[in-house]
Each structure stands twice: as C-alpha cells, then as structure tokens.
Design a protein around this nucleic acid. Structure first.
Length: 478
RNA sequence: UCCCUAGUAGCUCAGUUGGUUAGAGCGGCGGACUGUUAAUCCGUAGGUCGUAGGUUCAAGUCCUACCUGGGGAGCCA
C-alpha cells in the first residue's frame, strides 16, 4: 500500500479508501475502547485523526504510540463521527517506526514558550507554529524566484567569499586557512596574507550588490538570493549574523522604477502567501490573537491576515527624507521632547523616528527617498541638489527597514570623487569602476532582508524564530 | 557593546518584612471512562532554587562577581 501524504488524504481522500499514512504522533487520547491519534507528517498543519479500536491492537504497541513517536498506519478512510475533521483513518495495522520516550521527549502536548523552543531548534519543526513558519518560508523563497523569473530576471550566484570589504556594510567574518596560533608574518611583523589560501585577505560576503551590478550591466536584470554574513555584535529581535538577502539589480531603472519594482515585488509575495499558505496563516493569526488578548485594547495590532491584505491593497506612502524631517519636527513627540534622539536635517533617522512615521503618522508602509549623502553609501546616485542621493528605504510597521536600495551613480567621475572623499580605494575597485568606463547606464537595485520579510508575513516578533538555526553573537548551536 | 529584566520540578510560574518538612497548573506514569479534539475524573512520582563567593543564629529571599535567556538602544537587511 503506497503511502499518501496527509495533505492529500485530507483534500482528496474518500470514505472506504484504503491508505497508508506515516508521520509523527502529536497527541493520543481516548477511552478504554477507542484511541484517537493525531498524526502529522509536515505536509500540512492539519493532523489526520487515526482511530484505533483498542481490541484490535496489543496493549504494548499502543503504549509506544506517544507524543513524538513516528508511526505508520494502514487503514480505511471513513467519514468522521466526531466534529473537528471531515475524514479520519480507521486503523487496521499500526507500526512503530521510531519510539519517543515520553519521559525525555522535550516537546510535550502543551503550549511551550518560544524561548524554550529556540533552545530545542532541532525539534521545534514538530510544533504547529514552526511547521507553519517553515512552510511559509519555503513558499516565500519559491515565490521570490517565481516573481523574478516571470519578469525575465536572471538569478545570479554572487560569491560568498570575497576579497572586497569596500562597501563598508559592516564588520566581516575572516576566511582563512592560516594557522591562527602561528600565522606567517611579513617583514613588518604583520600577518602575511599573500601566503593565505587566496593569496590575499578574504571574508564572507556582506552583500552581493557590487557583483550584482556587474551582471546587470550585461544581462539587464539580475537578482541574487543567498546567505549574507555580518560580524556585528547586534543583539536584537531583527538581526542575525547569518541571514538571507535578495538583491535585484536592474539596468535602465531610475529610482522611481526601483520603488515601483520593490512595491510590486513585496505585494506579489504577500499575494502568493495568501493564495497558497492560508491554513498556516490562519493558525499563526489565531496564535497571535491569543497573545493579543493579554494586551490592552489600544496596543493590539491588526489581525495577521487583515494586515497582509491591507498592505496588498494600499499604495506605499512615498516621501523624501526632507519631508520626513518636516513631519517629525512638527510631530507631538518632537514638540513634547519625547524623542530620545535629536531630529534635524542631516542626521540619520533613529528607529523611534521611523516607527513614528510608519506606525503613528501614516500607519502604512513608507518609502523614504533622497537621503543626505553624508549618511549613505558611496555608490548612490548623487542628486542635482548636491546634498542628497537617490536612496530609498522601505519601512514596515513593527519591523522597520525591510528594504534598502538606491539608484546607483553611473558617472565615473562623480563616483571616483565620492570614493576618494570617503577613503574607498579606487584602485582595488577597478573592476567595479570598469562598468562606468565601458557602456555605463543608469541602473538601480535594492536588498530585501528575507527573514525580516518572513517576520512580517508570519507575524512573529523575533527573527531567530523565522530561520531554522539562527546564528547570533555567542550562539551557533546545531 | 550599553541599559533594563529574569534564572525555583520535564515545561510555565507562585514563594510575604530573611525563619520549621519549597508549592500550583500543565506534561509524565498508574487507574477510571462507548467517539475524543490542549478530552475529562481520581491517584502518584519528580527539586543541589543558574554558578562561585560573601553577610547572618538562619538565605530560594540580602550583597558581589560571573554565566545564560528575554526586552530595549546602537549598527543594519
């Protein structure tokens, strides 16, 4: 008897059909005569109810059917006599595939804290919450490729190991095969990287953007989707040392085209989630609702699915940095001196300011553009005013910056001048500058933090709960 | 890295101004129950109170240091 996945059984199974199901036991309950086993195989958040007539099975076998155990069940589908499910499997044969000692198995049939499950990340996939999260995460990864493929973008694999740290996007992890106890030294007593594996100092990438631009300047439109590494000592609910980033880069796109793409892209992912992940979203929405009950009325947030639909059906607010500063300086918290950090043209916005704009003032995703050049990266398009650059940050409620992007400076002279001002070595970056020397065109791109986006779609609060095995300072378990 | 906060049974927590044998719910185990939905009911086992010092007649409780978790900030996606 071929094994069927529980998702298929629940969707297409007919009463009277003989099937085999395999999975992990969530709970077992029942009386002297009948046992009910909730079986889950990961294909869906829904469980298949197994009905076992106690008389037909020996006692010891049923004793091993405990939470967490893996079993195989051969039986006949029947319309369910109880409520809660339409169809159930009347068991003829049950085989224990793998026992799970109930004294030791950590995932009990009860509510666990997210902190506890994080410490049991190897087993948390077996919970409803994390099953839902990782099915949604998969669907979103697939939808990313689907979206760009449909638009004719090329998926470019940019290197993980890189010798360039020119972007200055943060502290990097060193990659080396030198003996750390006893490295070769130069005459001046410094580490001699010419003897290292790559013949120079190398690191894990902090961004594929610069290489992405090279691809875009021939293929037209590319995107990357890969792991990214930042050795920052960041301990927050929205930072990881190893995370996944999606970075499209497009020739012939100006800043507005870039914003249009970013907005359409995010909305297409949300649409895909609503179309394909409803069972999981509904579970997560219900879970959030339970949590919200403990909060005062005015602090409760929108229902998860409503929130997704709201973002889908409303235009993102687009304002310039300068306009944002005006709004902030005219805001109540500014006048009542409630902001901890000063607001004035030229300073970078702090998260309290971003949150005010997104969560209080507009209550909607916001795209901020045209930042002062002094607080942004060297490669951003210099505007005619001489003060601002063609940057754009997409800010989401609760999460903050979900996308950072810009039009890129395509003028060789302006770019070199800016690099010199910011002490970025133009000679080491010859390959990057070559794109401006030969057939340079206006182009744009952005980076989407994948986990931050998954936070938004799942409604989870901590980024460590939307990646399977989080890498954070002082933590690389599993 | 800084600020705040927590660490007591497998899990989630309570534990009064320091005072006798440290409690509950859930989970586990045993039993009861003709179909349950986090089943219900009865019973039962389970603790070096994060670690190391210190104060005291007496420390889960007070002090110091460290470790770990959580929240916030900075940095950013």
């Amino acid at each position: 008897m071929a094994r069927l996945k529980i998702k298929n059984i629940l969707q297409q199974g007919k009463p009277g059909e003989k099937v085999t199901a395999k999975g992990w036991v969530r709970t077992k309950r029942g009386s002297k005569n009948v046992n009910f086993i909730a079986l889950n195989d990961g294909s869906t958040i829904l469980n298949l109810q197994i009905v076992a007539d106690v008389a037909n099975f020996n006692e010891e076998l049923l004793r091993d059917v405990t939470s967490g155990a893996a079993i195989s069940v051969l039986g006949e589908l029947a319309e369910s006599a109880g409520s809660g499910q339409n169809i159930e499997l009347i068991a003829n044969e049950i085989e224990i595939l793998g026992k799970a000692d109930p004294e030791k198995y950590p995932i009990q049939p009860k509510k666990h804290s997210l902190e506890f499950l994080r410490e049991n990340a190897h087993l948390r996939f077996r919970t409803n919450t994390f099953g839902a999260i990782f099915r949604i995460r998969h669907a979103m990864a697939f939808a990313v490729h689907n979206y760009f493929n449909n638009k004719g973008f090329n998926y470019l694999h940019t290197p993980i190991v890189t010798a360039s740290d020119a972007e200055g996007a943060g502290q990097m992890f060193r990659v080396s095969t030198l003996d750390p106890e006893n490295p070769p030294l130069t005459e001046k007593g410094r580490i001699d990287y010419s003897q290292d594996f790559f013949g120079k100092a190398t690191n894990l990438t902090v961004s594929g953007q610069l290489e992405g631009e090279l691809g875009a300047m021939a293929l037209g439109e590319i995107y990357t989707f890969g792991p990214t590494f930042r050795a920052e000592n960041s301990n927050t609910t929205r930072h990881l040392a190893e995370f996944w980033m999606i970075e499209p880069e497009m020739a012939f796109y100006d800043l507005k085209d870039n914003m249009d793409l970013a907005e359409e892209f995010l909305k297409s992912l949300i649409q895909y989630a609503l179309d394909n992940c409803m069972d999981d979203l509904q579970f997560l929405a219900g879970r959030l609702q339970q949590e919200e009950k403990n909060k005062p009325q005015d602090q409760r947030s929108m229902d998860l699915i409503e929130k997704l639909k709201f973002v889908l059906n409303n235009d993102f607010i687009r304002i310039t940095y300068t306009e944002a500063i005006d709004i902030l300086r005219n805001s109540k918290p500014f006048k009542k001196k409630k902001f901890q950090f000063h607001v004035e043209w030229g300073v970078d916005l702090q998260s309290e300011h971003e949150r005010y704009l997104v969560e209080k003032h507009f209550n909607c995703p916001v795209i901020l553009t045209d930042y002062p050049k002094g607080i942004k990266a060297f490669y951003m398009k210099q505007n005619d005013d001489g003060k601002t650059v063609g940057a754009m940050d997409v800010l989401f409620p609760q999460i903050g910056e979900i996308i950072g992007g810009s039009q890129r400076e395509e003028n060789l002279e302006k770019l070199e001048t800016r690099m010199n001002e910011m002490n970025i070595p133009t000679d080491e970056m010859w390959w990057y500058l070559d794109t401006r020397r030969f057939g340079s065109v206006e182009h744009s791109g952005f980076g989407l933090g994948f986990e931050r986006f998954i936070l938004f779609v799942t409604g989870m609060g901590n980024i460590r709960d939307v990646i399977a095995f989080p890498r954070t300072p002082k933590s690389a378990e599993f």
